[in-house]
Design a binder for these strands. Structure first.
Lengths: 212, 212, 212, 212
DNA sequence: CATGAATGAGGCTTCATTCAT
DNA sequence: GATGAATGAAGCCTCATTCAT
């Protein structure tokens, strides 16, 4: 219901009247360029570089995103989403829930090494979990986790948060080793996945912080 | 004889190195303050903030460290070393090689969460491995790895690089979760350690990059 | 056709170069102010002083001239050119080739006393002769030299380089005496010009360095 | 009389008691080093460089010369004197007054090219003529001028100031061309000297500023 | 007195953000 | 609306001068 209302804006056309013509095109160009630049150089880039690459002036950029932070957020939302989606797709093909999980990690980590700003901002995962893209990612993992647990393929007590944290920490590892030791992180993934299988002696320590 | 005299500095105070009583104190204050600030805020801090906190003027700071980079390097060296040493000490007490490894990680990761600049610069581990502190860390891990392998407690094929990368990636995880979910990373450590034990079905994939 | 439209800028103001009405004004103001300040105080001035006098912020100044050096160069180019041009104009009126030469020196040295930065940078004449203004100056002298030589009014063997060096060294003299002995340099000019006339006993020593 | 009193300081030994032992040696070392550095790099050098080369600490340096300017002045005084003296000596050998003049210029300009600070500070010649070294120089020229005039070898009306200004402006020329066109200035000297001989058509313009 | 460490004002430059055109 | 020029607060670093040892 609420969602529908959110989209029902046209009901009051005089209010938020928007000549979408090129404004939309501009906004997209900005986000596209920003994504490129942020992936390449991290969030410390000069805003000018983004404006230059997107072909718009600084004024236009700042009209759409009043603060640099706003733009960064928008891009992160988008790229987190894309990331989540492509990793999800890599997982759905597998019939075996364990293979789905493994494929997910493989895909997520492979396509991920390039994005500096995402890695930099993974910190937001728990600190500020309202970033929509992160929620999406979490939902994908949630499903994979549930499937594998149901099939008895996952070590008892493993939570979505565990899997998410694993993803993040391996993501960082990928970033670090991508240029000089590009195969190293795969081994770490193997090790971690094996640690996620059931059948280990000791149970995991409790997580008293877990909400709920 | 001359050598002995050379060490008896007080006898000939004008000779080579004046004691520079306060210079040493200042230099230490600078490094101390810088370590604090770098740990808190990462390497992007204003040099002025470091000067302010160490209680010296800009000139003094720049006399000891002609470039900001020099100071950062010095602090990183020091803190990597301290880190390595305290983690090593945590490991030597344990008779069981496996326990030594586990204790090492536990200690290393616990004392580590606070240091932003170190996390930022872990990237240098492979890219620029001449940072002395990193070498120290690597040597500690090397020994632990050898011990556990010799005792047959470590999964075949696990290398120092694997263990180092694990440390780094878990370190990052600690940093991210330290404030909001302080117990989460312990579970990941458990999982990873279990993945490092022998007895898993599939062997690790090869690491073609491994020098030698 | 397209070219014509391209020049009819107002027709398509968004096309290539927006007129940047004030940008041009600002740039000129900056150069103007810089010229003033450089003339007064030499190249060691604080950039802020230039910004202040031109009425723009630091950012604007650095947008137009990314390095202080760039601004200095621009001003020197401009002022050398102006200098060369006004001196040339002073020379063309004279029918007598010798008078042309004398008028040139007179004018060049008179309008020149004020400019500290130019004097400072005359050193570039030979060391870095690609400064456009210097080339212009040299070409003016070249022509005067050729004319006077052809008319047999110039001492045999006198080259453009000689005349240029004379200009420079007298320029320096002007600078030094301008405030306290404003008429002194004129006498030196007389003396030097007389030394340039033909009819002296000994020929000039050779210049083995002369290119070609 | 006054001079004698100035040297009679020892009459009141309790007043300006001075342990000359190494203080004098230090002062000399400073001046020596400063002269070197100033000649090489001009007056813009870092005071530290001078302290380093003279082997004394900053404190000592500043005890002898409370301002950088004081040290620079002292050096200039000294080097102007040396310069004047060596040029004078080059002149006294010649019996012919004209040759004396020519030798003087030749020697003065040859030994002079190296000294950046002197060239930079020639401006003081008229602006601040109390620099003792400059007075010395002037006296040398005065004598040469008088001799040549008396012998009828100098163009009528040429003054000490003319000759001094010529020296300065040629000095500047030497500096500029010394590295790239080391023979160029000699030609200019020839030209100027020829301009100084008697027998030219027009008399020199008057110098109404001439004191006295 | 000598030493050289300490001081801090001031210089150049960058960049997020605002504003005139 | 779009444009890109303008703004100015920081940021890094240097160096004449002072001061504790």
């Amino acid at each position: 219901m609420l969602d529908l209302m959110a989209e029902a804006e046209p009901l009051n056309p005089a209010r938020r009247r928007a000549p979408r013509a090129d404004a939309v095109r501009n906004r997209e160009a900005i986000v596209e360029a920003a994504a490129e630049v942020l992936a390449e150089q991290g969030a410390a880039v000069d805003v000018r570089e983004i404006a230059r690459r997107s072909g718009v002036g600084m004024g236009t950029l700042y009209r759409h995103f009043p603060k640099k932070e706003d733009l960064v957020r928008t891009v992160l939302r988008r790229d987190f989403s894309q990331w989540a989606e492509s990793a999800r797709l890599a997982a759905v093909d597998a019939e075996d829930p364990w293979a789905a999980l493994a494929d997910f990690y493989q895909q997520a980590l492979t396509g991920y090494a390039r994005h500096r700003a995402i890695v930099e901002n993974l910190a937001l995962t728990w600190a500020e979990p309202d970033l929509e893209g992160i929620q999406q990612l979490r939902r994908v993992i949630e499903r994979l986790c549930a499937r594998a647990t149901a099939a008895g393929l996952l070590r008892p007590g493993v939570t979505t948060d565990d899997l998410l944290l694993l993803l993040i920490s391996l993501g960082h590892a990928v970033q670090l080793t991508d240029e000089c030791r590009p195969h190293l992180w795969t081994r770490l993934l193997h090790i971690s996945l094996d640690g996620l299988r059931p059948g280990h002696r000791a149970p995991l320590p409790a997580d008293p912080d877990q909400p709920r």
